[in-house]
Write a protein that binds this DNA or RNA. Structure first.
Length: 580
RNA sequence: CGGGAUGUAGCGCAGCCUGGCUUAGCGCGCAGCGUUCGGGACGCUGAGGUCGGGGGUUCGAAUCCCCCCAUCCCGACCA
């Protein structure tokens, strides 16, 4: 492609609205332009990248046995009413009416439609399993579109839906899709983690998220470098650092761990951990935090955890087997002195759940259950009893892996894919049933699998960029080589540029030939900004020596390449980078 | 949806507080001419604006007041 015949409007300055590199670079490199909040046009360069990502995804879906379909964006409300999501989805669903006032929505996802398809045409266990996918524009009227393509209201997603006889068959497809997703990210060339995750609105039993690591990511990931355990921060389990270990070590000062007598201390108006820690000049980890939760029936539960930790209500609820919520101030049990709660004495009235972060015998500070007083030297199990012990807190730096004991790492990233085991939630509601070998009518067992194509593009930039611009991996770069002729004024050199351009095209490599009549500096800067992996630079030197300067975007390495060795270079480069 | 901010030429901004000295500036970009030509060159000339919209205060509003709209950021949701 000749630059002069193409359309790559680059910007020297970062647009004011862009807060993070991927957003800024998407605009500066001429990949996208905003049309409204969370709604973007893709310019030619952006389209080329998207097509490459789509192609990799498509190939891996096909390899995994999924079959491509193309479903409508506009969906009738009736299907959503059947699934129950017409109401559940809320204002995030773009709704519209046709001329006859019938309700429709713009598809934010396609469970309803694929399940309907299955209902129409899947009749027998002989038709199973089947896995259908599409690459389609999705619409979600996000409360808060953000960071350009990372959270848009209109975006492209690859979504797949599988139908199986039973959970065992679902398991097989689920694993295939898991592996396909890994292959996609490996082929693109991104660092990523697969984490156990929450299922959210889509519903279902189990899910994994695929996280592309990036400092600006919104997802927090807990990762074990030794055994590979990784989980969404919201769900991660971990073992708090063991005080016992230190207590019994040869170097420890044994006196620190002698249990002293409980003593009341006057702490007027000090009701939060932070100020208590300052007031008594102790580490927050020496304080027992007591949090009250209640279930739907109004029953109250007390959760104890180390003062430096946050209660993870999801974990607490899962453990208790109830849906739990924070107890509001002065609500119900008004005799409980919020701010001065503690386990001592409370254990007679309320079930106490104690987080693993609370250790025995370390002279904790805890509320005295009496306004303006705390207790010093509270020790478990000497001073109070608990009903349950477990992991109820968010993981913290310093925590250890539950499976191998290694110190956990905390990372950030961008969720680009999510796979779910749906079970029969949708098939039951939409009556997608099949006749099994035993002659019984059963609901299809479903799974669903999504990859954000446009988000993946932004995530790649977020992970791979520098001060000069984007650093595309070769796999999804809009062009492989940027051919730069330093001056177009020299007719001879210009002629040679045309010749090399033809040579490269004949070698079937994607080349962007910067034939613009502008200074070489701009060509270099633009090439770096738009992130082309390799530069072929043709200067006056070429006229004498017939050598081209080849520069690599990522490493900055430069080599001199003789013209007659170009075919060999290209061949090697293509095979090293898995280009056809 | 709650909290915070912004809206002035294609892009980035100044001017607003303290209304008039503005025919609304500056940098980049854009057009023409000339000199440059391997890391965003220089000179000259030029095009480009309902100061987000509406209403109000005033002799006079980009500037003060009210309403609306849009956009961005922080929180609860998600590929």
């Amino acid at each position: 492609m000749r630059y002069s015949n193409f359309f790559i409007p680059t910007l020297k300055e970062s647009p004011g609205e862009a807060e993070i590199p991927s957003h800024s670079l998407c605009i500066r490199a001429g990949l996208i332009r905003k049309i409204a909040a969370g709604i973007y046009s893709f310019l030619p360069l952006g389209v080329r990248v998207l097509k490459k990502i789509e192609e990799i995804v498509r190939q891996e879906m096909n390899r995994a046995g999924a079959i491509e379909v193309f479903l409508p964006v506009i969906q009738p409300s009736i299907l959503w009413e059947k699934s129950g999501r017409w109401n559940e989805y809320g204002p995030e669903l773009f709704r519209l009416k046709d001329r006859n006032k019938r309700d429709f929505c713009l598809g934010p996802t396609h469970e309803e439609l694929t399940t309907y398809l299955a209902h129409l045409d899947i009749k027998s266990y002989k038709d199973l399993p089947i896995n259908l996918y599409q690459i389609q524009t999705k619409f979600r009227d996000e409360m808060r579109p953000r960071y350009g393509l990372l959270r848009a209201r209109e975006f492209i997603m690859k979504d797949a839906y599988s139908f199986s006889r039973d959970n065992d068959d679902l398991e097989i497809i689920y694993n295939k899709m898991h592996d396909a997703y890994c292959r996609i990210l490996e082929r693109i060339g991104l660092e990523y983690r697969v984490v156990i995750a929450d299922t959210g609105l889509i519903g279902g039993k189990l899910s994994h998220e695929f996280i592309v690591l990036a400092d600006n990511g919104e997802e927090k990931v807990v990762f074990c470098p030794k055994c590979g355990y990784s989980a969404n921060y919201e769900l991660s389990e971990s073992v708090p650092p063991d005080i016992e270990e230190h207590k019994n070590s040869a170097t420890s000062d044994k006196k620190l761990y002698e249990e002293n007598a409980v003593k009341e201390v006057y702490t007027p108006g000090i009701i939060d951990i932070e100020s208590l820690s300052k007031f008594l000049n102790v580490d927050t980890g020496k304080i027992i935090k007591t949090v009250l939760l209640k279930d739907e029936t109004g029953k109250i539960y007390a959760f104890l955890l180390s003062g430096d930790r946050e209660l993870n209500i999801k974990k607490a609820a899962t453990y208790a087997g109830k849906s739990l919520n924070l107890l509001e101030n002065s609500e119900e049990k008004s005799d409980l002195t919020i701010g001065y709660l503690g386990p001592v004495g409370l254990d007679n009235e309320i079930d106490i759940y104690m987080d693993n972060s609370i250790k025995s015998g370390v002279n904790y500070i805890a509320g005295a259950n009496k306004k303006d007083y705390h207790l010093l030297n509270v020790n478990y199990p000497r001073d109070f009893t608990v009903k349950h012990r477990g992991d109820f807190a968010y993981s913290m730096p310093g925590d250890r892996c539950i499976s191998c004991g290694e110190r956990l790492e905390f990372e950030k990233g961008i969720e680009i894919g999510h796979i779910f085991k749906l079970g029969t939630r949708y098939s039951e509601k939409l009556e997608a049933k099949f006749l099994d070998v035993d002659g019984k009518l059963k609901p299809l067992v479903m799974g669903c699998y999504g990859v954000g194509i446009t988000r993946l593009m932004a995530a790649a930039i977020e992970q791979l960029h520098d001060g000069r611009g984007i650093i595309w991996p070769v796999s999804i770069a809009p062009f492989t080589i940027s051919l730069i002729v330093t001056t177009t004024k020299d007719e001879k050199l210009s002629h040679e540029g045309n010749r090399i351009y033809r040579t490269l095209k004949e070698l079937d490599v994607e080349v962007l030939y910067d034939d613009r009549d502008i200074s070489a500096g701009i060509k270099f800067k633009d090439s770096d900004l738009i992130g082309i992996p390799v530069k072929f630079i043709l200067g006056k030197k070429f006229l004498n020596k017939k050598t081209i300067d080849v520069e690599f975007r990522k490493s900055g390495d430069k080599i001199e390449l003789r013209e007659d060795l170009i075919p060999e270079f290209i061949k090697k480069f293509k095979s090293e980078n898995n280009l056809n």
